[in-house]
Design a protein around this nucleic acid. Structure first.
Length: 505
RNA sequence: GCCCCGUUCGUCUAGCCCGGUUAGGACACCUCUCUUUCAAGGAGGAAACAGGGGUUCAAAUCCCCUACGGGGUACCA
């Protein structure tokens, strides 16, 4: 079993591309097959520097690895179509010789003119096909001597000669039998005038040469599949199996998710942040938003595919185990950012704090938090992890208790303070336990409350306000434990210095 | 326009192939519970077979039509 992912380096890979790559990867790994990365850079006008490196880095980040590709080499190298240019020309000419294709010399203006003419005559979208090709300048209409002469002196393309009256049927692993009539097809260009192949020729030739057995791609390719089927027939090659994945739709359902959506939708559409090399514009990525790669892969896997049971949270290895094309659905799936966050949260909760530490580092730095030793950080992450869905949210929770509250306390906080707690605080600071540990601290707080004849529910919120300036957050006992005796003392004394004295006056 | 693909809770979907389910799960939402609080957790709730025809004792499930949505229609991929 040989599968491939074949993006074109025209910009960053968006999340739909990630899913296509993921499904290919999952299937290859599940069946112990080969997985190839092929760069389809046959359109030189759309080449974007940095895009190929981005694609490789983004997929690696998601945990998707390749057995062959431009970055790792392999027996079918090269894996960039621009570096295989001469291969395609040879196959295109072979097709001409065998009567499956022909040379065409029409200029862009002439094509434009042809379309205008036929449109005026009532045709809606004239194609270069069985009817129109007889009016054009090509090796089917021009005398052989003129063809030979033009071949020497001017640019030309090679077009596929669509056979007439053919029902083209193929089996799609997801959709079942799909059929087209050849009269709907046009004589697609196979070899462009710059000598480069179009996608259609290149992907068929390469899939054959690389012995690809399964072509899994987006549904947008379904309409050009009959052309590919005919190409396999023309070459006399065995066809791979096809599976066309449902599209990833915008949350509003108004079309497929595209690169141009950028940040317009309120969530990233790219795995990694991307800076456009031409405009300098920056589009955000899941990595920079603090998502875990396993969270992104897990959520994306769920868009259009359903596991056999009710379980939804999977590691990559479990996905490999579980995945099958039979359980891929046909209808397009809308992207739901809220659920993506939830899936990520599930993964976050299952990660060890010490593993999370290095991942959190950049966000920690962004908030310019004071340094702390690893053990303290781990404890703080442990506390914060429970109430966050992404890495920066973990940091935000830490910020809420790790930073000293601003003094004097904000008015809303002062209002909520229980006066007896403030008044009796000096005496109780003395009673703080020497065994600095959360259960001792809990005992201390409870004794404090009891002495005041108040419920713990009245006392703790005030203490929380005094210690952190916040009204909500993780367990206060645990916060005190991780902050340490010195820091807690300093915060209590600091508060008293500002608010305690004033109270007494 | 034409061609192709699709249509189950707001969203992702199970069920459809092999007709008979109180149409299941998850996110989000609501209620309760636990908790010092906020989350998380636990319990519960509201919420869907696009419409119309067939076939059948029986249709979400099979067939046809309509509507709607999407994709394609380049010397782009």
């Amino acid at each position: 079993m040989v599968l491939r992912f074949a993006p074109s380096p025209t910009g960053p890979l968006h999340i739909g591309g990630v899913r296509t790559a993921l499904y290919n990867y999952l299937l290859a790994r599940k069946h112990g097959g080969r997985f190839i990365l092929r760069i389809e850079d046959t359109d030189q006008t759309r080449y974007v520097p940095g895009a190929e490196a981005y694609i490789i880095e983004a997929l690696a980040w998601c945990g998707i690895t390749f057995d062959e590709g431009p970055h790792v080499g392999g027996p079918a190298a090269p894996y960039r179509q621009s570096e295989r240019k001469n291969i395609y020309a040879q196959y295109a000419h072979e097709l001409v010789e065998r009567g499956w294709a022909y040379y065409a010399f029409d200029t862009e203006e002439e094509l434009e003119e042809m379309r205008r003419r036929f449109e005026a005559a009532g045709m809606v979208a004239p194609q270069y096909n069985a009817i129109t090709r007889s009016y054009m300048k090509n090796s089917l209409t021009l005398p052989p001597e003129e063809v030979r002469e033009r071949l020497q002196s001017q640019p030309y393309v090679i077009r596929f000669l669509i056979p007439r009256h053919r029902e083209v049927r193929f089996y799609d692993k997801i959709r079942g039998w799909v059929s087209f009539h050849s009269k709907e097809l046009d004589d697609k260009v196979l070899l462009k005038s710059d000598g480069m192949p179009t996608y259609h020729l290149a992907n068929v030739v390469d899939d054959h040469l690389m012995q690809v057995t399964h072509v899994i791609r987006g549904e947008e390719w379904l309409p050009s599949t009959p052309l590919h089927v005919l190409l396999y027939e023309a070459f006399g090659w065995e066809m791979p199996e096809f599976a066309h994945l449902p599209l990833l739709l915008r949350p509003d359902g108004g079309g497929k998710l595209s690169k141009r959506d950028g940040d317009q939708l309120g969530f990233p559409v790219f795995p990694l942040q991307w800076k456009d090399p031409f405009t300098g514009e920056v589009a955000s990525g899941y990595r920079e938003k603090g998502f875990l790669p396993e969270g992104v892969a897990n959520y994306v896997a769920l868009l259009g595919w359903h596991p056999s049971g009710d379980k939804e949270i999977f590691t990559m290895d479990e996905l490999i185990q579980e995945f099958s094309l039979e359980r891929v659905s046909k209808a397009g799936a809308r992207f739901d950012y809220e659920k993506a966050r939830w899936v990520n949260q599930q993964h976050l909760r299952h990660k060890e704090p010490r593993v999370l530490l290095p991942l959190i580092e950049p966000f920690w730095r962004d908030r310019s938090l004071p340094p702390a030793d690893d053990l303290t950080k781990e404890k703080m992450v442990q506390l914060a992890r429970e109430r966050a869905a992404t890495l920066p949210e973990v940091v935000e929770v830490i910020v809420s208790f790790y930073l000293r509250p601003a003094l004097p306390l904000h008015d809303k906080g002062i209002e909520k303070l229980q006066p007896p707690v403030v008044e009796n605080l000096p005496a109780w600071i003395e009673q703080l336990p020497s065994a600095w540990e959360k259960s001792a601290l809990e005992q201390w707080a409870k004794s404090f409350a009891k002495a005041l004849g108040m419920g713990i529910g009245k006392v703790l919120p005030s203490l929380r306000l005094i210690l952190t300036g916040q009204e909500a957050g993780p367990s206060l006992y645990e916060i005190m434990e991780v902050l340490g005796q010195q820091e807690v003392n300093a915060r209590l004394e600091g508060f008293l210095a500002v608010h305690g004295v004033r109270k007494r006056v």
